[in-house]
Design a protein around this nucleic acid. Structure first.
Lengths: 140, 140
DNA sequence: TTATACCCCACTAATATTGTCAACATTCAA
DNA sequence: TTGAATGTTGACAATATTAGTGGGGTATAA
């Protein structure tokens, strides 16, 4: 029941983009160094994020990545789903595939409740929330 | 972010034990057939559940497994944790290990909220709840 | 023109998952 | 007493996933 590093690293990187949100594109190299992650690995993650319209890229020297909208308009859920796919605890919950038990499967009901609960949390937190929280902690 | 089959199969098996809760031990073979699972694999899971005091075994002919207490006193959380370990979405949340960022890690705060939310759900559902829900659905 | 950066795809080592299998111990019932 | 039913334990293996690495491109600013 772990989040893979895709989700975790990707979220850390997106947080960094939110922290330095502005007009200047930010390079992968910078993010990788700042967060202590592999640049090559981040590339793959950013490819997903771009495909899903959460970031845009600027090629060439002085290029990099930018959020496509303000941090307050990007949720943690959007980021994690882009990187991990749906955060369902099992296939049958994700695609509504029948586990040959259909509605009678008591376990499925439990798993759906878990999924709903996770969705609820990640869809209610934005990148801006993360930034605000961090700034608040640092000022202590 | 998937639950492994350990958690899923184990919960299905525990549900079966709850459904037929009584004085008679229930054999693995029966449970495996009833739920369509591998008997040998279930053995490993039951070893965990027994270690954590959720079930007891009766050896020999006519033997099998029994819940150690009533279904209403066993939560889904107890079952899943016995099989999967803590359901934290990342190591740093689970053991409070520092990710070298300590308190400043905005991502960790998010992950902790996810964990709390999951814990909240699974600790609030008992095996009895699962049974009741199932009987209700079947009577429709 | 050159350095910087994104882009894309192939590949791999390590790890976790999902079991299988075999030998053994205990108990019940005939 | 014996055999069948059942739990116990530990080793093993196939497969999938994770977590990267590496290299050869292309675009662009300076």
């Amino acid at each position: 029941m772990k989040l893979s590093t895709k989700g975790r690293y990707g979220l850390m990187a997106m947080f960094q983009l939110a922290l330095e949100f502005g007009d200047e594109p930010i390079s992968l190299k910078y993010i990788a160094e700042k967060q202590g992650l592999s640049e090559n690995y981040l590339e793959q993650l950013f490819s997903n994020l771009k495909r899903d319209g959460l970031i845009q890229s600027v090629r060439g020297a002085q290029g990099g990545y930018l959020l496509t909208r303000e941090p307050k308009d990007i949720t943690v859920g959007q980021v994690l789903r882009s990187l991990e796919g749906h955060l369902a605890p099992a296939e049958c919950v994700q695609h509504d595939i029948d586990c040959s038990k259909e509605d009678n499967c008591a376990t499925k009901l439990v798993l759906m409740k878990i999924k709903d609960s996770i969705d609820n949390v990640i869809d209610s937190i934005t990148l801006e929330d993360m930034v605000v929280e961090t700034l608040k902690n640092n000022s202590n």
